[in-house]
């Protein structure tokens, strides 16, 4: 399966989803007016990936800012990945990174940790 690579813009994050390694990274800002447009291909890729996931999948989220319109889509990514947990011998982990001093992003990580049923680590990005 092809990896999904999308370059960052001023309004949308960098996406680096590597199907071979199982490492899925989201980095930067996600503040588009139209989140639907940006996240639709991202969610489609996830739909394909979960059919034949890597043994270990890690999704690494390094978000600086995101708007509430993106927040639902970020959760949707996690929810789709949840299906991996039900497959034998397949593991999934979410790593939520926040900059030191950015308590808000840590709190937001807690919001997501609370509403997803996946192993979820909140990590300081030193």
């Amino acid at each position: 399966m092809e990896s999904l690579i999308i370059k960052k813009t001023k309004q949308t994050p960098e996406i680096n989803f590597n199907a071979q390694s199982g490492v899925l990274e989201i980095k930067g800002r996600s503040i588009p007016e139209n989140s639907f447009e940006f996240y639709t291909p991202v969610l489609s890729w996830i739909d394909q990936y979960i059919k034949k996931p890597n043994e270990n999948t890690i999704i690494k989220v390094y978000l600086e800012y995101f708007n509430t319109s993106s927040s639902k889509f970020i959760l949707e990514i996690f929810k789709k990945l949840q299906k991996i947990q039900n497959i034998d011998n397949k593991n999934i982990l979410i790593e939520w990174y926040y900059d030191k001093n950015d308590e808000e992003m840590m709190e937001t990580g807690k919001d997501y940790k609370d509403v997803t049923e996946l192993p979820f680590e909140i990590i300081i990005n030193e």
Partner: peptide
């Protein structure tokens, strides 16, 4: 506010505009 935010985040549908009624709470 935090609990309400989490509830809406988790339960509401994604609209075409993407808005999830979370803006003002946020």
């Amino acid at each position: 506010l935090r609990d309400w935010y989490r509830k809406i985040l988790n339960n509401s549908e994604i609209s075409a505009k993407g808005g999830a009624n979370l803006g003002m709470i946020d």
